[in-house]
């Protein structure tokens, strides 16, 4: 999406020339991979491209899409948020306890998001003000958030019976369930803030060259605080979808969401060194990973093979990004 301005008139010829370059495949790894997966799986399984399965896949992808967007903001600044899935778990427990205390759906939802923002705030303070390495700081808060979730829930899942949650998880407009609509709205907002506002430009500047950004009057501290808050807040939103899907707030570890959120961003063509912002890429990356898991399940491939497949796809994508245009 960022390269709209570059490609102009002689489109067809240009496209032809581009396809012959490896950088074309590297730039568009996620959409090409998604199309390839859809073709392969729909050939192998008649159920894959049915409306019912597409709807199920989109709903299943919503949590990962939201987490990948949060992760994308952080990674654009050259950071990483390893605590993102633990924060989601913490937010889910926050929702569960608030709901159990009779605060109702909406207040509980706010509690979940505030819980996520709280972890984001701690990350931001540690990294932006305390100058702790992002990797170490968020590894620490990963453990802290997981521990807190276990402590406050006493290690037991909290069952939730909420009509609002039921609507959230089962309601839909056509084949688009509410969860994926929520994720899409967040994606559009994220794209807008990243590419059309001063804030987004400053996020990219800090990630690209912090020294130059600061020399031009941008506060790197504020930008870093903001991206970890965004990541934490979005983890809180994802917590709602997680509780809605499971029907309970579980203090589970959810490691696969952490790895997949980073994998989706890498698949989406975002450089881990920062400076190159993408929103659509990571969203497609998240859809790809969900389609991969779904397709393998439909084909009856053992669950044990799924992490292997995800790992292979991510490593391949990382190799391909080496050939991206600078």
């Amino acid at each position: 999406m960022t390269t709209i301005e570059h490609v102009r008139p002689p489109r067809l010829q240009a496209v032809g020339a581009q396809v012959r370059q490896i950088s074309f495949w590297a730039e568009n790894a996620a959409p090409i991979g998604l199309v390839a997966l859809v073709i392969v799986f729909s050939a192998l399984s008649p159920t894959f491209l049915t409306l019912g399965n597409i709807k199920a896949m989109l709903v299943a992808a919503a949590i990962l899409v939201i987490l990948a967007i949060g992760q994308s903001f952080v990674i654009t600044t050259g950071g990483i948020d390893l605590s993102i899935s633990a924060t989601m778990t913490f937010g889910a427990i926050g929702f569960g306890l608030a709901f159990q205390a009779g605060l109702g759906f909406w207040v509980s939802a706010v509690v979940a998001i505030v819980a996520g923002l709280l972890i984001g705030l701690i990350n931001g303070l540690l990294i932006a003000k305390g100058k702790v390495t992002d990797f170490i700081a968020t590894l620490g808060t990963l453990s802290v958030a997981t521990g807190l979730a276990l402590i406050v829930s006493n290690g037991k899942p909290i069952t939730i019976n909420s009509t609002e949650l039921l609507t959230l998880t089962s309601g839909s407009l056509g084949i688009f369930g509410y969860p994926i609509i929520l994720a899409a709205v967040i994606a559009v907002l994220a794209w807008f803030f990243m590419f059309r506002t001063r804030f987004g430009l400053h996020v990219q500047a800090v990630g690209g060259n912090e020294e130059s950004a600061v020399a031009n009057g941008i506060s790197a501290t504020r930008i870093r605080m903001a991206v970890y808050l965004i990541s934490g807040g979005l983890a809180g939103v994802a917590a709602l979808l997680l509780v809605a899907r499971v029907g309970a707030a579980e203090p589970a570890i959810n490691t696969q969401f952490l790895l997949n959120s980073i994998a989706a961003v890498v698949l989406g063509g975002v450089s881990l060194t920062g400076g190159k912002a993408k929103i659509v890429g990571p969203v497609i990356g998240a859809l790809l990973l969900t389609a991969l898991t779904n397709g393998l399940t439909l084909l009856g491939v053992s669950q044990f093979y799924q992490p292997l497949a995800v790992g292979l796809v991510v490593v391949l994508a990382a190799l391909l990004t080496r050939f991206q245009k600078k």
């Binding site: 001063r198 430009l201 500047a205 060259n209 020294e211 130059s212 031009n216 009057g217 941008i218 400076g275």
Partner: peptide
């Protein structure tokens, strides 16, 4: 001396960086 430019941004983005 180091020009204070951000390589991954465009010329116009660099031009107005910090005073958009």
């Amino acid at each position: 001396q180091n020009l204070a430019l951000v390589e991954d941004l465009t010329v116009w983005q660099n031009f107005f960086l910090g005073r958009e």
